[in-house]
Design a protein around this nucleic acid. Structure first.
Lengths: 179, 179
DNA sequence: TTAAAATTGACAATCGTTATCAGTTGGAAT
DNA sequence: ATTCCAACTGATAACGATTGTCAATTTTAA
C-alpha cells in the first residue's frame, strides 16, 4: 500500500534548519538509528499532506520537518518538544492530532511497548520488528521473513485472515551485559 | 521457573460458588477459552499466597477464586467487577495491587495489546502467544516453537541476551470474515 | 475576495494506573 | 488467648497519556 518513500527525506537548501535533537528528559535512550537522508524541498511535505486529503498548514509543515530529523522512534511528547523549541505557538494537541492522522494514513507507525507512551516512526519502506534493550532502551530493528512466513501459517491454521502483527523482542544489549 | 500449576485449579465441594461471568460492559468479547478444571479446596490459594511471602487475607482469597473461573484473559476492571458483585466491600485498589503482586511472582501474565487496558491471564504451563480478531476481540492462543527458535537466532545475531518477547497476531476470525 | 469548511490552541475531560494515608487486620511472639 | 507491629486495606487523590470541546483563526475552492 502507501509505503511512501517521500517522508524519508528532508528540507531544502534555501531554508537552514539546525538539527533538532529529539530527546527524552526522563528516559534518555542510548544512541540509536538516526534519520539522515538526502535533503529535499518542502514541496514534498505539501504533496504528502495533500495526498492525505488535508489542508497544508504551517504547523503541519513544521511537524513533518521535525520528524524527518533526529531519532527514529519518538514519542508525541518528544515531537512536541522539538516543534515547540522552534515554534512555541504550536500546541500539543495539534502535534497529537497530526500524528494520529499520519498513523491513519500509514505514513507513520505507532509502536507501543508495555505501558510506555507510544512511539512513532516513519513507516519503513520494508517491514521490520524491534529488539529492545530492557536496560538502556536501545532499539534495534530487524527483519525476519522466515518468522513472517510462520506467522501466516499460524493464522491459516486457525482460518484467520492476518491483518498485522506486533513482534517485540526484549533482552540485554551487548553493552549492558558487560556492565 | 515458577510455572505453578496450582493456580489452574479451583474451589472445594464444601463451598458452593456460582460461576461468575467475567464480562466487559463496553467491549463484550466473543466466547473464548474459559478456565474450567477439577475443583480444589481453598487451601491451595493459601499456599499460593504464602509462597509469595504475603499475608492470607479474605480479599486475596476472593480475588483468586474469581480469577480461577470464567474468561481466560481479563482486565483488572473485569476482575474487580466479579469480585465486587460478591463482595462490594472490596476495593478497586486492592484488586489492582494484588494483580501486580501476582504478576511480579509470575503467577499471572500481563498481556498488553495496543493502547487497550492490560489483560491478565493465569500464567500458562506452556508459553504461548495470541492471535486476536480485530473485529470481535476473540483471542486464540497458539504455540510456535519454530518462531521461538528464530527469535533466539535474531537475538544472537545482535548479541542480545533475550529475556522475553511479545508476539500478537491480528486478523479476522473465520466467523467475522463471513459477515 | 469571499465564504464555507477545516484547523488550531487552550484547556478540560477521560482513561488506566499508581501513590498516599489513616484505619484495620493477620499472624508471630508472648 | 492476648498483644503488637508490620502488612494490608479502602477511599481518594494524583498521575501521565491521550482525547474531546469550542471559540477563534486559517486554508482553499469558487
Amino acid at each position: 500500500m502507501n509505503q511512501t518513500p517521500e517522508l524519508t527525506v528532508f528540507s531544502s537548501d534555501t531554508e537552514r534548519h539546525q538539527p533538532i535533537q529529539l530527546t527524552t528528559g526522563k528516559n534518555p535512550l542510548e544512541p540509536e538509528k538516526l534519520i539522515r537522508r538526502e535533503p529535499v524541498d518542502p514541496k514534498s511535505f505539501k504533496r504528502i499532506i495533500r495526498k492525505m486529503g488535508l489542508k497544508v498548514t504551517q504547523q503541519r509543515m513544521v511537524i513533518l520537518q521535525c520528524m524527518s530529523i533526529g531519532r527514529a522512534h519518538v514519542t508525541a511528547q518528544e515531537v512536541f518538544e522539538a516543534v515547540n523549541s522552534q515554534h512555541p505557538e504550536i500546541g500539543f494537541a495539534t502535534v497529537y492530532r497530526f500524528l494520529r492522522k499520519l498513523a491513519e494514513h500509514h505514513l507513520v507507525t505507532e509502536v507501543r511497548m508495555g505501558g510506555l507512551p507510544a512511539r512513532y516512526e516513519l513507516t519503513p519502506r520494508r517491514h521490520h520488528d524491534h529488539l529492545t534493550c530492557v536496560e538502556c532502551g536501545q532499539i534495534v530493528e530487524f527483519e525476519s521473513p522466515q518468522i513472517e512466513v510462520l506467522q501466516e501459517g499460524v493464522a491459516k491454521e486457525h482460518n484467520f485472515r492476518l491483518t498485522h502483527h506486533v513482534l517485540e523482542l526484549y533482552g540485554e544489549c551487548p553493552r549492558c551485559q558487560t556492565k
